[in-house]
Amino acid sequence: MNVTITLNGEARMFDVAGPESLLSVLRNDLDLPGTKDACEQGECGSCTVNMDGEALCSCLVMAVDADGSIVLTVEGLSSEGELHAVQDAMLKHGAVQCGFCTPGIVVAGSRLLESNPHPTEIEIREALSGNICRCTGYGAILRAFEDLAAEES
């Protein structure tokens, strides 16, 4: 089955035979391993991608069903060596330790700021409650997003 998606701004075609997930195709067939595979059941958020404007767990998207959609992964957020504001803020606040959750948080967080540029603390917490971090205790991540929320748009 041939599938075409707009991936990080470029049209990409791939072929799938079975029910494999978009996550699997991104990592194994499209050479984009930045999206992480940590639970495969939508319970950790490590595989979050922006698909047609929504933050979704790519492990729960059947790849063939993504045909025609617009997908943004962590690799597509920064361009020409210029980091996305969320990536900058995460670094500045020490919100990265092992970093395995980071791509999912960066994508989910950038989607949050698109829909709500000035979220409150509790809105940040709820919006990122689908992204498990095992290292930081979330404190530095919260400070990064509070910093972003305080910025003038």
Binding site: L32, G34, T73, V74, S78, L83, Q87, M90, G99, V106
Partner: peptide, 8 residues
């Protein structure tokens, strides 16, 4: 840090 936030 930078490779980690960019997925690289």
């Amino acid at each position: 840090g930078e490779p980690k936030v960019t997925g690289n």
